[in-house]
Simulated scan of single mutants.
Amino acid sequence: MMKQTKAVQRVLILGMDGAGNFVQQADTPNLDAWLPRGAYTFDAKAEMPTISAECWGSVLHGVQPDKHKLNNEKAATLSYPSDSPFPSLFRLAREQQPEAKLASFSSWSPINSGIIEDNLGVHKVSLPDAELVSSLLVYMEENQDVRLLFLQLDEPDGSGHRYGYGDDCPEYLAAITTCDELIGSVLKRLEKLGLMEDSLVVLLTDHGGGGDNKYSHGSAHPMDRDVFWGCIGPGINSGLLKGPVSITDTAAIAALALGLTLTQQWDARLPEGLLDDTWASKSITIVDSKTAAAEESHNG
């Protein structure tokens, strides 16, 4: 008999920038404790090029960079098109669940201004890492019914650019440890509020660094491209994932958990072995834009 699992009430995507899979060498007691509570890997792949806008864009839009067309300059200077055929998770959630509370806390402000669409009623905050998490914790206390929440901490990427990326760079590893403490405070607050049992949480980074250039990233070198990724929540298996995982796949499990219908063919896929048998009857619904338009016209 298939066991029952709690319905997911909220999805939280909690990320640190530029950590690659160096969390294995850094002191990360929170990730060490939390990742095994769900499915995880240290061999997930960042998108190419391994740069923040391209990678966070893929996490939030569910498609590879050649489709969402984002880069750091565009994200910093332009709003993401509100009529793009590759909407963000936030736009899909707003269109299909109009009353949903949506929030994005990003230390790198172009995520809020140029990767997530404007005028969606998303609660957006851009502050330095520690202040950002303090603001998020207050928000969570007051908005426990939030439906989708995203967090991006700008370290350790900043430290990598300043001091170098890699397990031989103590300042970089220390920045990962600081981010581990900040993300740990969010996870502990969720647990204290009794929200973990019906929350889906994705823990990840966008890329690494130090492959072709000790102080930068962007290449296909494993130091740039290999990253950690984990997912915890109802119906999620526990243990190391054996199959391939892309950071883009974050959008697939988030969409499934939120019950969203997709109106374009995503590149995001559900990683093999991620879901237990309680999800057997569930699948992501994808319709093409013509079908969606016809259905909307018929229903109207």
Rank of each mutant, 00 (worst) to 15 (best):
L193N: 14
G300H: 09
S159H: 12
Q97R: 12
T250W: 01
G20C: 12
A44P: 03
G235P: 00
M196F: 15
S289K: 13
V202M: 13
Q4H: 11
L31I: 03
T291P: 08
T263G: 10
V11W: 12
E181T: 13
E181G: 14
S79M: 11
G20W: 02
I176R: 04
E272C: 09
V186N: 04
F228M: 02
L12W: 15
A100I: 02
I236Y: 00
L151G: 12
R37P: 08
K101T: 11
P87A: 05
A33R: 12
V202E: 12
D32T: 08
S219N: 05
D212E: 14
L203P: 14
E95Q: 15
G184I: 10
Y163I: 09
T285E: 07
Q152R: 07
S82H: 07
I253Y: 04
L35M: 10
D157N: 10
C55M: 02
A254P: 05
G160I: 09
K192L: 10
T263V: 06
I232C: 03
L137K: 14
G235H: 09
A100M: 08
L173H: 02
D267T: 08
A252N: 01
L151D: 11
A33Q: 05
A251I: 05
Q9D: 12
T263H: 03
L153H: 04
